[in-house]
Design a protein around this nucleic acid. Structure first.
Lengths: 347, 347
DNA sequence: TTGTAGGCGTTATCAG
DNA sequence: CTGATAACGCCTACAA
């Protein structure tokens, strides 16, 4: 390993001069700088990350508290956060959660000087990790939202706006009777996960406001519940002509079983997935019309918000909401004038 | 931040004694140890990661070179690697690749003392990153395999065994005519990606050995190619009764369009997905029979192999191959005695 | 514009 | 078993 001292010797300058050119921290005579630069080049010097962190009291590491629930697709999100971090001279460390004392684990990351700040995802409506971070005065940013957001940096999907968009798009096609399909997370660690909560509330509010009708189906993450959904829906809300789904597995099942029941999509019934992705939608036949989750942008902006905070650019909190946008697909269409009779025996 | 010195003062011992108990590095009198421990507890001491790394010349960080191709599901894999690392006192850092000079970037991670070792995924048959790491004498482990594997630590799916398993399982059901569907990666950065290469070679070899028949379909990752696959297959290999697919998107499309063409799965034709996952398979109707990729185990073992190497446990290289195992599904069944006539006009 | 020197918090070596 | 003390490689006042 080649050190600053060796570079200094070769360039016939002091070690601090090397530091100045390496970090651009003080003006250095062009000619001296050249000498240093070429010494660095010839020796293949790289400044030692750990020594730098120790001396500067900054690790330049962001810890992403990483949920172990693997039924969600965080890929784009994590990817973008890592990339953004790297572009700003930071690194992203995955911090899997599995201990019971999650909260103390998280702040110790920072107290141990390992990370400068924390990125939190899968945030619950009331999240003790957040309060703990606040108390410990540890820099953090959320992907997602808690209930109380005063002064908190966060980036999240605008579920409210997305829901409204989907309803209005479908209403514009003549639909008047909606069904919303969301995940039922009761009994799971995500019981108070806010996306379904916010979406359901918005769904009801918007329908009421527009004078439209609808039902809500909460579907647990189990094969039996998912496969019985279609029949439940047709029985309990037979007038439905437009389904909005925030449950990809359920969407799949619906597409298949609705056709089994003799309904054609979108001729007889429309279905739109929100907070999903085109990649998933394109697998279906017909391609599912999806309002794509802006995973990439969320990851990037969350990392950047945290970095901004770390670098002292204080000021108002970053509070960003991004709506999902409709991206192709062929599963929505004009509302049918009337629905064909269902062959109930087939169900 | 509370330091070792403060702990030492409070416990009325020297700083080295504190270090000994914190790291279990030398015997300490039970009573002294107790004093230190309670001082640590009272003060809330945590040893500084960066100082430790500097002094011990070990960062305890593994860098996962992280591909930016997001059409693959690396979730379980990354997750398991991070968890395993953490269990061994290491951290996993995501290192997104986007520079042109990937190779030098990778070794500089280590030269900068940031990471002790590197985990490489999406390995190509000939991979210059590997040769570069070898030349730089940087510790690394692969997830995947290059062509030349002498002395290299790697963990990979046993595509050969998996392919053989799938063929034999289906042959056991009476199938004699197979089609293999793999991704065509020509023209992409993964042109020499080894899984499809190995799988195709094995497919041909095993069929020949068993006296069975088959065709190979290489399908690019494009909607048009994927949607025309079914017709191509039925035209070019009409006698096929069993499809083995290593291309999830194509599997989806096949399930849908085969039914459109009047073929029932698995009555008329069987389909098995290899290196896939039950989670994906369960979305289909009928549930796709999948030979599940052991992502979780691969991630764990790769991380552990690298750590073993880092900790000087040398000896023969870790070279692990894990076959995918069949996991449920209902898309394979006995070979049909004869296939119903196809309504060619429907295609 | 450049150099000197004192940390940063640990680890590790060597005495006692 | 315990304690000094010298690294580890870099940053950063403070001097020159």
């Amino acid at each position: 390993m080649v050190t600053m001292q060796q570079v200094a010797d070769r360039a016939k300058v002091s070690i601090s001069t090397v530091s100045f050119v390496v970090n651009n921290t003080k003006p250095v005579a062009p000619e001296t700088r050249e000498r240093v630069l070429s010494a660095i080049d010839e020796l293949g010097y790289r400044r030692n990350t750990m020594a730098r962190a120790l001396a500067s009291r900054k690790s330049r590491v962001l810890a992403l508290i990483y949920p172990l629930l693997d039924h969600r697709n965080h890929h784009a999100f994590v990817d973008a956060a890592a990339t953004a971090a790297e572009e700003h001279g930071y690194s992203l460390v995955l911090w899997p959660i599995h201990s019971d004392n999650v909260t103390t684990e998280i702040t110790s990351l920072i107290q141990a000087g390992f990370a400068d700040g924390v990125l939190l995802m899968e945030v619950q409506f009331e999240d003790e990790r957040v309060t703990h971070l606040q108390q410990a005065d540890a820099p953090f940013a959320l992907i997602g939202r808690t209930g109380d957001l005063a002064g908190i940096d966060y980036v999240d999907i605008d579920f409210e706006r997305t829901t409204e968009l989907a309803i209005d798009d479908l209403a514009g096609l003549g639909h008047r009777n909606f069904s919303l399909v969301i995940e039922d997370l009761d009994g799971t660690p995500l019981a108070r996960y806010s996306p379904p909560i916010r979406t359901e509330a918005t769904f009801r509010a918007v329908l009421a406001e527009r004078g439209l009708h609808g039902s809500v189906f909460r579907v647990p993450h189990e094969a039996t519940a998912i496969s019985s959904l279609t029949d439940d829906l047709l029985r309990e809300a037979p007038q439905t002509t437009a389904i909005i789904s925030m449950h990809d597995e359920a969407s799949y099942a619906l597409m298949g079983r609705l056709r089994h029941r003799g309904l054609e999509i979108p001729r007889d019934i429309s279905i739109a997935a929100i907070a999903s992705s085109t990649a998933i939608g394109d697998l279906m036949d017909p391609p599912l019309s999806t309002y794509d989750a802006p995973g990439h942008e969320l990851g990037r902006r969350a990392a950047e918000a945290l970095i901004a905070r770390l670098e002292g650019r204080d000021g108002p909190a970053t509070q960003v909401l991004i709506a999902c946008t409709l991206h192709g697909g062929a599963s929505i269409g004009p509302a049918p004038s009337r629905r064909p009779e269902l062959d109930v025996a087939t169900g």
